[in-house]
Write a protein that binds this DNA or RNA. Structure first.
Lengths: 107, 107
DNA sequence: ACAACGTATAGCCAAATGGATATGCGTTTG
DNA sequence: CAAACGCATATCCATTTGGCTATACGTTGT
């Protein structure tokens, strides 16, 4: 019952938060206003969710003047990967092709 | 915003539920009373959690006389795997993160 | 300097959540 | 067949959660 693990699972349980994280994964660093567009909730709510995601280590923020850029910390997904791996040996198979692709790109 | 995906994430967000699922993964099919031991909550609560896990497709149940055996449906974890893959899959600009993930999965 | 902007925090509230106990209902056992 | 057992459902309660509006605070532009 790792503290971090719990924070990650809990953070990703909310659809709004998952949506924010997904957008940060797709489009890279974005300001709060940038995220606000398709979030479907008010600005303070977006900020609150980002705070929770940050506490779980899923995003990082960087201040530039009056802007705050948020970005996804994909490494944090390792928590999910580790847990899923532990629950089943199912993970590796699914990623074999991805692994191959990476090796090819490495050359 | 898949309905199933949401159910899975939501179901795994609770530590008690994750604990139940973990035990079912480790020790195979178990009765409610069997799970009750280390659950730390009352029997009705265990039943309620199992119901939620079942609705998310994470467990199945089988009736034998007055016993109900619950078991983990590991295939349901594919939802997690797929989502994580998709999120790590936007690697064009963040190659290192994905590489990190793959290395972790290799262990 | 002041207005507008970007973001975070503070309250507030309704709804959802996770827990408990009481109970119903089928199944086994004595 | 009555008591005990295994499990599910019903009800209730406290806490958490996710949303809102109002507001504070720093930054930028005029």
């Amino acid at each position: 019952m790792s503290e971090l693990q719990d924070a990650v699972f809990r953070a990703l349980a909310d659809p709004t938060r998952r949506g924010l994280f997904e957008r940060l994964c797709r489009q890279g660093d974005t300001t709060v206003v940038g995220l606000l567009a398709d979030a479907g909730v008010s600005q303070p709510v977006v900020s609150k969710h980002l705070k929770i995601l940050k506490a779980a280590g899923l995003v990082h923020d960087r201040h530039e003047g009056r802007y705050t850029y948020y970005g996804a910390r994909r490494e944090a997904l390792a928590t999910l990967v580790d847990w899923t791996t532990e629950m089943s040996g199912f993970w590796q198979d699914r990623f074999d092709d991805l692994d191959d692709l990476l090796k090819r790109m490495d050359q």
